Amino acid sequence: MDITAVDLFCGAGGLTHGLIQAGINVKLGVDIDQNCKYPYETNNNAKFIGCSVEDITGKDLAKYFDTSSIRLLAGCAPCQTFSTYNQKANSTDKRWWLLMQFSRLVKESSPDIVTMENVPGLLSQDIFHTFVNNLKMAGYFVDYKVVNSAEYGLPQRRRRLVLLASQKGPIELLSPKALDVEIHTVRDAIAHLPSLKDGEMHPDDPLHQCSSLSLLNRKRMNASLPGGTWRDWDEELIADCHKKTSGKTYPGVYARMEWDKPAPTITTQYYGFGNGRFGHPEQNRAISLREGAIFQGFPRDYQFIRHGESINKRIIGRMIGNAVPVKLGEVIGKSILSHLKNNCA
């Protein structure tokens, strides 16, 4: 079935790439981050517009929808404002209201299918239920649920809210059982990659590089066990902030992954050993930029920068950590195709 799609808040192309793998023709990605233009267009054969969705109209989107096909509007509005990690964000943050811009574009373009992915914390916000009610009032059948991406084959534990809406009839995300999913682990994802020392870059893949460690953090790394915490260390290695009562509730930093389990949630700062459970299970270093991309489901040859361009870990880490996992995008795409097969035959 011919489906054309537009991906709002597209980032480096995680959702788009997954939809393409499912067989959906994504024509356009929109994102305010200009750093995403190269990876998005290079890997997905789709056009990228670098601007805020506030500056896009339904007429703009209509230029990219094939009127003879099923039209899909997809997107993941910035999730930082709704994340449990962000204790300060509220409705005074401009990003909070971007979900309503998504709602506006649904109203102006009237796509056949809508999908949205975000953090589970969005469920508790009135703005999400306003978004859902707007869809229902416009005649969409709506379904949403929180899923663990690891159950769909992503080698990472990542709980996400997935919404699907259709004008064609009831729609829902396919279950892992329906897709006959195989669970993947850290070992499956990265055990085959070349070894690195901290601060080293592999000559054949500039993205397979990892951050340097201070002398103290090298000692901490040596003392860390897969699945363990900094509580396992000798007293002199423990950071002063963790010795305080308030700091004892954060055991998931300065920790190693485990080979035979999915990775923890990949954040925008996953390349730093002290930022989470991002230590390599065996080698004395944090995971590399490439390894983080693989945990997000990106193919190993996915290009994030031009050949020879200098690598900025902060920029690339943000693009990868903020991405919709490719595997989840593929599951969403397959669910849409299954729905249309049942409702448009």
Rank of each mutant, 00 (worst) to 15 (best):
I320Y: 07
C79N: 04
L72F: 10
L73A: 00
S69D: 12
G121Y: 11
N284V: 00
N118I: 09
G317L: 03
S103V: 09
L174P: 00
P281W: 12
Q303T: 05
L105N: 07
W230T: 07
K197D: 10
D301W: 01
I190K: 11
D204P: 04
M319V: 01
T130E: 13
K107I: 14
T42E: 02
A178F: 08
A286M: 04
E282D: 14
I56H: 06
Y254L: 11
L61N: 10
Y40I: 01
G169F: 07
M100F: 07
M221K: 09
L213V: 10
L328D: 05
K59S: 15
F304L: 03
N342D: 14
K136D: 03
L163Q: 03
G199V: 13
L237I: 08
S335G: 02
I287H: 08
I305K: 10
R256F: 09
K197F: 05
G153T: 07
I24M: 04
V324N: 09
K27W: 12
I24P: 01
P170N: 03
Q167F: 11
I190Y: 13
M137Y: 05
R218Q: 12
G274S: 12
G329N: 11
M116N: 04
G50C: 08
Y64R: 14
K63G: 12
N148C: 11
H17V: 05
V142D: 05
S214L: 09
Y140E: 06
G292H: 01
D143A: 14
C241I: 04
R220I: 02
L98C: 13
Q167C: 10
T130F: 07
R158I: 11
Q125H: 07
T16L: 00
I320F: 03
L289H: 08
F273V: 01
N312M: 00
D93Q: 12
G333S: 05
R318K: 14
D205G: 06
L213G: 07
H307L: 00
N118P: 12
